[in-house]
Nucleic acid binder design. Structure first.
Length: 479
RNA sequence: GGGGUGGUGAUCUAGCUUGGUAUGAUGCCAGACUCGGGCUCUGGCAGUCCUGGGUUCAAAUCCCAGCCGCCCCA
């Protein structure tokens, strides 16, 4: 892709930029099945890093991995009323086996609560069987009818879904917040994307949940995007699915449940938050290639340069850094520079005769303009540089996020800002579904997140309807 | 549902008014180049011109029907 094409595109049309970059950086691709994404090795490698990070954190909380069926019989899906109501419009159905019609329609799971909780109801008899702490890495299908977007909105979602059951509500709530905290960590520590943490409104919460918690992000076009959610399901599902146990007082009780999920979408958000007009900029911790070394040959010292470059790369690898040497022939160094900038590789080393003969390397960081040089004996400094870059990216992203949030209580202003996606607005709100519906009609925006802490109200009255305000909340357009 | 607009190698594109089997670029392959920012040069590869039908000696081009995409309106 020529640089001209990307010029200023990020500022003028973030989504167009995003598509160009994700496709050309070979992160993901469209497929012939409309709305279904192909994750290419470079993109999938990032998912593997995220997966490993989360898996370790989940297991530290006692969660074990499991696998449940892809298909869910219709009657199971219908057991919890608000759940099916929420998902019905986007469920894909299997109605035939070969050319025979099925007696019972099978839903391709849009999420696995129902099929899992049916099993839970048979597994739980006593308080000794609790808690159940399970997670699965899988995909779910939701038949989106709006335009699909790579990573952000696809019909098949690659994710993890955790499903826990407890003897009491306190444990369930604690688990919900624990997981929310893990998601916050993944976004901020790993992806260097700052998040707003809090609760979803009645209208925005998960179908069948008592409370939904979210980590919400803010993009450079002032749209918000939900990166992960954690739900306290209370006893809604356990009552529908008869998940009962006898407690230590010989009393029957329904379990308290949670479910929580993070998907590939988190990566899409990261791309949107960190790129520039040359392409992606990957935070070092998620980057499949953290350092790329490009040999610059001159025709007469090639052997020596390549040997030196290989030695350098080995030394870097032995420090635990994901480092590659790109010695492909037929591509000029300039071509490779552009290629790796597009792919967002954090650090590029240039190794030619100048470097090889002086025992040093030229270093170019993806997020800085100037090239520097580094003595080979100090090569361990790359690790420090990567850590610094990771920290700086989060800092910069946080600054950017904060600059896009406006605290405002003037109704007219708020409406006009929301309508034009001029910012994310924090304001005081009554929190009712009816009020949110009106806001959506007027502006296209929705409530994104309600802070967890008890904050001082920006105003006593709801900015939108004038009733008594209950809490402050963030509003905005969203993907 | 109504209206508009488009469909040409893997990708983008010219040609269509005025019919004569397709233009250029990117790409891919082979090679050259003191290969330090997508360089340059040589040769080659690559197309059911969305599908079906019609008109014609002859259709990417004109006509009809259909399919698919995008935009606008309901």
């Amino acid at each position: 892709m020529c640089a001209e094409k990307l010029k200023n595109m990020r500022e003028s049309n973030l989504i167009e930029w995003y598509n160009e970059v994700v496709l050309n950086a070979e992160v993901a691709d469209f497929s012939e099945a409309k709305g279904f994404t192909v994750y290419r090795p470079y993109g999938y490698a990032m998912w593997e890093v995220l997966e490993e990070y989360l898996d370790v954190k989940f297991k530290a909380k006692g969660v074990k991995n499991t696998y449940f069926p892809l298909l869910i019989p219709e009657y199971l899906l219908k057991k919890e009323a608000s759940h099916i109501k929420g998902f019905a419009p986007e469920v894909a159905w299997v109605t035939k086996g070969g050319d025979r019609d099925l007696d019972v329609k099978l839903a391709v799971r849009p999420t696995s609560e129902t099929i899992m909780y049916d099993s839970y109801s048979r597994w739980v008899k006593s308080y000794r069987d609790l808690p159940i702490l399970l997670n699965q890495w899988n995909t779910v299908v939701r038949w989106e009818t709006k335009e699909t977007r790579l990573f952000l909105r696809g019909r098949e979602v690659l994710w993890q879904e955790g499903h826990c059951a407890f003897a009491d509500n306190k444990s369930a709530e604690e688990n919900t917040l624990d997981m929310l905290n893990i998601y916050k960590g993944a976004m901020e520590e790993l992806l260097a994307v700052p998040v707003l943490v809090g609760r979803k409104s009645e209208a925005e919460k998960f179908a069948g949940a008592v409370a939904t918690y979210t980590v919400e992000t803010v993009l450079s076009n002032n749209f918000a995007s939900q990166a992960a959610t954690s739900h306290n399901l209370g006893q809604n599902f356990s009552k529908a699915f008869e998940i009962k146990f006898i407690d230590n007082n010989n009393q029957w009780n329904y379990v308290y449940q949670t479910s929580w999920g993070m998907s590939m979408r988190a990566l899409g958000i990261m791309f949107l938050v960190h790129g520039d007009n040359k392409g992606l900029i990957l935070p070092p911790r998620i980057a499949p290639i953290q350092v790329v070394a490009i040999p610059i040959l001159n025709g007469k010292d090639d052997k020596m340069i390549l040997k030196y470059a290989n030695d350098v790369v080995s030394a870097i690898k032995s420090d635990g850094i994901r480092c590659e040497l790109d010695s492909r022939e037929g591509y000029t160094p300039g071509w490779k520079f552009n290629e790796y900038e597009l792919k967002g590789v954090p650090i590029r080393l240039e190794i030619g005769i100048k470097e090889a003969s002086a025992a040093k390397v030229s270093v170019k960081k993806r997020n800085e303009k100037e090239k520097t040089t580094l003595e080979l004996k100090n090569i361990k400094m790359l690790k420090v540089a990567l850590d610094e870059m990771q920290a700086n990216m989060l800092k910069e992203a946080r600054k950017s996020m904060e600059s896009r949030i406006i605290i405002e209580k003037d109704t007219k202003n708020v409406i006009s800002i929301l309508k034009s996606a001029g910012a994310i607005v924090k304001t005081s709100w009554c929190g009712t579904e009816k009020c949110e519906e009106t806001i959506k009609e007027k502006t296209g925006a929705t409530s994104r997140v309600i802070p967890l802490e008890n904050e001082k109200l920006i105003s006593d009255k709801c900015t939108f309807c004038g009733d008594d305000a209950k809490y402050n909340a963030y509003f905005g357009q969203s993907y």
